[in-house]
């Protein structure tokens, strides 16, 4: 399976009749890192959960549940059994999930710790004794301990300072490449992600509206939403005014572009007709009135 490409087609998550995510088509290349970007509530986390096959109770997911997927969470401190030292937690996964004999777990633990740039002695630490960055490394080691076929990181870097964030992102990419497995990294930090990820998917209301090579997507955003999102960094002049608020009371259009109710360029067609994919294979988007590349 190593190096192979996993194709996900028509991934959806619904709550009763209401569709929260999708349908979503994703191509996960072995050794490649796919970044999923979007604002809060855009369905990033649900997409990952659906890929891992653990959606919250009451929700219904289709097309996901990739076997052998391992998740890394946003808040790694609560990811570990607080009673156990890190080494014991790693041993649990190695022994119970991978059926490694206990006598051989020690060498496996130290090689996993080295993989994520932790010291052998760190196995003796309790989770509450580690810093955020160390915890996130340990969480990645936990995920790697399962020998995953797919590595999923859910806002794994959001709680970290910028320097540590880049280090962890680089680490995620490196381990995915070394193991030739695909990784999906979810973040709302488009800039950091685009510099390390091989591909970027921009989600809005659970629907992909733009995707392609990270550098291209960030340099020349075509969908109006992404264009506004990239402009809406906190800044005194434009504070909070670039991206219009979600209008209250307006029901989400089920046929049209999901961004139409907020889009300053939207017309009647946007509200009734979902745009088709346009652009090239390295950068494509769905917008009736795309921004011109500068």
């Amino acid at each position: 399976m190593r190096g192979a490409t996993t194709v996900i087609q028509g991934l959806t998550v619904s709550l009763g009749e209401r569709r929260l995510v999708g349908p979503l088509d994703l191509e996960l290349k072995g050794g490649g890192v796919l970044g999923v970007v979007g604002e809060s509530g855009s369905g990033k986390t649900l997409t990952l959960r659906a890929l891992a096959g653990i959606v919250p109770e009451g929700l219904h997911a289709l097309g996901g549940g990739v076997p052998g997927s391992a998740l890394v969470f946003q808040d790694p401190g609560s990811y570990f059994n607080p009673r156990w030292r890190i080494g014991r937690s790693l041993q649990e996964v190695l022994h119970v999930v991978r059926r490694v004999p206990v006598s051989q777990t020690e060498s496996a633990i130290s090689s996993l710790l080295n993989d994520v740039e932790l010291e052998n002695d760190d196995a003796e630490l309790f989770p509450f004794e580690m810093s955020g960055g160390m915890l996130q490394r340990a969480a990645i080691a936990m995920a790697l301990a399962t020998e995953p076929q797919l590595l999923l990181a859910d806002e794994a870097t959001s709680a970290l300072d910028p320097l540590t964030r880049d280090r962890i992102l680089t680490l995620l990419c490196r381990v995915a490449r070394e193991r030739e497995i695909p990784a999906v990294v979810v973040s709302h930090d488009l800039e950091s992600l685009s510099s390390v990820a091989d591909g970027i998917v921009v989600l809005y209301n659970g629907i992909a509206i733009e995707e392609g090579q990270g550098s291209l997507v960030v340099a020349t955003p075509r969908h109006r939403y992404l264009e506004l999102l990239l402009k809406s960094r906190p800044c005194r002049e434009t504070a909070g005014r670039v991206l219009p608020e979600i209008p209250r009371g307006e029901s989400e259009t089920s046929q049209g572009c999901p961004f139409a109710p907020r889009c300053p360029n939207a017309d009647g067609r946007c509200r009734t007709e979902m745009p088709r994919w346009a652009g090239s294979s390295s950068h494509r988007f769905r917008c009736h009135h795309p921004a011109e590349p500068q």
Binding site: I54, L71, F73, S78, N81, P82, R83, E92, V93
Partner: peptide, 25 residues
């Protein structure tokens, strides 16, 4: 708790989760 979700996602069997990851806490 999240560590229960995590243990589940890592493939730890449910009886073991209850016995070692839930009960002691």
């Amino acid at each position: 708790g999240r560590h229960v979700l995590a243990a589940r996602s890592l493939g730890i069997p449910e009886p073991r989760i209850v016995l070692f990851h839930v009960l002691p806490l």
